[in-house]
């Protein structure tokens, strides 16, 4: 018995040595180190101004302001152009602003309104006079920082509470205009309908393809489908990449999303729901299967003992 345990120790030692070498160690050398995300957006300054939502509403929904391009479903304001027209004009469909106060960091929103390419971390794409499709807010005549604080306060006032914002909404608002999710029938311009005829299907697919083409031209490459990205990348990679895409992939045209910690948790929850849908079942079945084999082994041990007792 003693000898068997010694042999087992040798086998376990070399197995673990191999495992540590080819898995954790090799991966630590293959991928660059990026610190865990904090979602603090420390590079952005807080103006310290306290916003007034009522004044903000005028600024957001006024003539020539945000709603000139963005829809605001929370206030029943439709987008001036449909997704396809927007994509052909800007490269991508501008997001609806209803959830933005709930999903994005305040400092990030303020910086985004003032200087989009800076907040989004894509200034490297808009050099030499090229303009970011979203025009920065140039002020309505008063203190621009105060006005921006008012706008942010307004966006926060109309945003749903954390309980009312579903993981799917979070994904659609934050990621869904550039990334499809085909395992949940999401195609960047909306959820795929069921088709009554081939004609309907081809027309819809042509729309999606037209949108995709504009998006691809704008981004430089087609942003990947995220259906099972949760299995294809580690949690650490995804969360650091979402916080600051440049940290993992320098020069990428993916913008910084500006999610708060809660917003990131919501998005990850959705990615898990779709990409790793068996997670809950796996975690609830696992202990029972293991318990079964523990009992099996105990019984087998007594059988072995009874078979071998006369042998020595």
């Amino acid at each position: 018995m003693n000898k068997e345990l010694k042999i087992l120790a040798v086998v376990v030692f070399f197995s673990i040595l191999t495992y540590v070498g080819v898995e954790p160690f090799a991966h630590s050398q293959m991928h660059k180190h990026v610190d865990d995300p904090t979602y603090a957006y420390a590079d952005l300054k807080d103006s310290g101004k306290k916003g007034d939502a009522v004044k903000g509403k005028e600024l957001v929904t006024g003539a020539g302001a945000c709603t000139g391009c963005h829809s605001l479903k929370a206030e029943s304001l439709p987008a001036p152009m449909d997704a396809l027209t927007s994509a052909s004009a800007y490269g991508v469909n501008p997001p609806d602003l209803s959830n933005s106060g709930a999903l994005y960091d305040e400092k990030f929103l303020a910086d985004l309104i003032k200087n989009p390419a800076h907040a989004l971390g894509v200034e490297h794409k808009f050099k030499d006079g090229a303009m970011h499709p979203m025009v920065g807010f140039y002020g309505a005549g008063g203190d621009i920082d105060q006005e921006i604080a008012d706008m942010v306060a307004y966006l926060k006032s109309i945003a749903p509470t954390a309980e009312n914002l579903t993981p799917k909404d979070a994904f659609e608002s934050a990621c869904g205009r550039c990334h499809s999710m085909r395992y949940d029938k999401w195609s960047k311009i909306g959820t795929d309908p069921s088709f009554k005829s081939d004609k309907e299907m081809y027309e819809y697919k042509a729309k999606v393809a037209t949108y995709d083409e504009a998006l691809k031209a704008y981004m430089g490459a087609m942003p990947p489908d995220l259906s099972i990205i949760i299995r294809a990348r580690s949690h650490h990679f995804l969360s650091t990449f979402i916080e600051n895409p440049q940290s993992q992939l320098e020069g990428t045209s993916m913008p910084r999303v500006g999610l708060t910690k809660d917003g990131e948790v919501k998005v990850m929850e959705y990615l898990t729901q779709i990409g790793d849908s068996s997670k809950d079942k796996r975690e609830s079945l696992g202990p029972w299967v293991i318990l079964f084999f523990v009992i099996f082994s105990v019984i087998a041990y007594f059988w072995k003992q009874s078979m071998w007792k006369d042998l020595h």
Partner: peptide
């Protein structure tokens, strides 16, 4: 086999 089955059980855990 009685010993094999025990080792299999531990292996399967």
């Amino acid at each position: 086999l009685s010993k094999d089955v025990f080792v299999m059980g531990v292996f399967l855990i």
